[in-house]
Computed example of a mutant assay.
Amino acid sequence: MGRVTDNFIKHIESYGFKARIVSIEHIKEIQSDMENTRRIHRDIDNYIGKYIDKFNYGIWENSLKAKSIIIIAIPQPIVRIHFTFGMKRCAAIMPPMYLLNTSNELEKKQKKIIEVTSIIEKILSNENFKAIKTNLPCKLLAARSGLGVYGRNNICYIDNESSFYWIGVYMSDMPCKDDSWQKNSIMNACRNCSLCLKNCPRGAIADDRFIIHANKCITLYNECEGDFPKWMDSNCHNSIIGCMKCQMICPVNKNYIRNIEDLAEFDNDETKMILVKTPLSELPETTYKKLKSINFIEDYNLLARNLKALISSRLL
């Protein structure tokens, strides 16, 4: 790898991040991979095609003369949020990555992503290069770049270490020499293990194929508005958003399961206001700030429904 890319990775790692850099030439291969997945697995196209449609494979042609793709992975803890019901104080968990998770349209307003982008821009500016945050298949790029590897649960494990990371992708005019492009592979730890398959509430992880059955994935439904399917019984719900069933049971994650950050606590009045869907504009400023600290402003319209689901499952 060239001096410039070596220096970039060295500096980015000083912030506790991990990174790989690959040539921009691979972007068409990434697009082809995604299109093939949609064509072969129609359920993927039907259920998450609207997300795949938002990937932007052409931004590098119109903005800067991009020569490389930078893939960044940032370690993230499980978050614990406390709610109060009468005199009872209860805890709900939120999976890693959600503190930085946002729609592509609102990334430029997300404080933590702004901070990450600023760090990348600062490092690159020392060599007179630039970078632009872009919306591309993060897990796939992490796996193809060698930064991560897929688990049987289709989640990306960074450096075979854990799945508790947020992954971001940037285009840059920084040259890339001797990139680390490789074929997809599955973690060695998964080859004789089926714990995530057995622990998946509705069988989204199965033996008949590697790609999960999107229509059976809990995360698909509690990240979107609307009523839950009738088959989603109370045993399915385990997180305030997303699902932790396959990650909590995974042996590779065992050293990181106890890395939990207590981030916010809502008193009885605040919990009541959330449950009755009080509009954000009518919430007290202190409550609004708490929601912002757990990155639940954009997804506030999901919070009451998801919280009630946890109550019905007796996890709260």
Results as ranks from 00 to 15, higher is better:
residue 7 N to K: 14
residue 11 H to G: 01
residue 14 S to E: 15
residue 19 A to V: 07
residue 27 I to N: 11
residue 43 D to I: 05
residue 50 K to I: 12
residue 50 K to N: 14
residue 53 D to F: 05
residue 57 Y to H: 13
residue 59 I to T: 00
residue 64 L to P: 03
residue 68 S to I: 12
residue 68 S to K: 14
residue 68 S to L: 10
residue 77 P to E: 11
residue 84 T to K: 03
residue 89 R to N: 14
residue 93 I to W: 11
residue 94 M to A: 06
residue 103 S to F: 01
residue 104 N to H: 07
residue 111 K to V: 06
residue 114 I to A: 06
residue 115 E to M: 08
residue 120 I to W: 07
residue 120 I to E: 07
residue 140 L to I: 05
residue 151 G to N: 10
residue 153 N to Q: 00
residue 156 C to K: 03
residue 156 C to E: 08
residue 164 F to Q: 09
residue 172 S to N: 11
residue 182 Q to V: 08
residue 184 N to E: 14
residue 190 C to I: 04
residue 194 S to R: 12
residue 194 S to G: 08
residue 204 A to H: 09
residue 206 A to E: 09
residue 206 A to S: 11
residue 207 D to R: 05
residue 214 A to L: 02
residue 216 K to H: 07
residue 218 I to Y: 06
residue 225 E to K: 14
residue 225 E to F: 03
residue 226 G to C: 13
residue 234 S to A: 15
residue 245 K to C: 10
residue 246 C to E: 04
residue 246 C to A: 04
residue 246 C to S: 06
residue 248 M to V: 01
residue 250 C to L: 09
residue 257 I to D: 03
residue 258 R to P: 01
residue 262 D to A: 01
residue 264 A to N: 15
residue 266 F to R: 00
residue 268 N to S: 08
residue 278 T to S: 08
residue 282 E to L: 12
residue 283 L to F: 03
residue 285 E to S: 06
residue 288 Y to L: 10
residue 288 Y to P: 01
residue 288 Y to M: 05
residue 293 S to W: 04
residue 295 N to C: 03
residue 297 I to L: 02
residue 305 R to A: 12
residue 313 S to R: 11
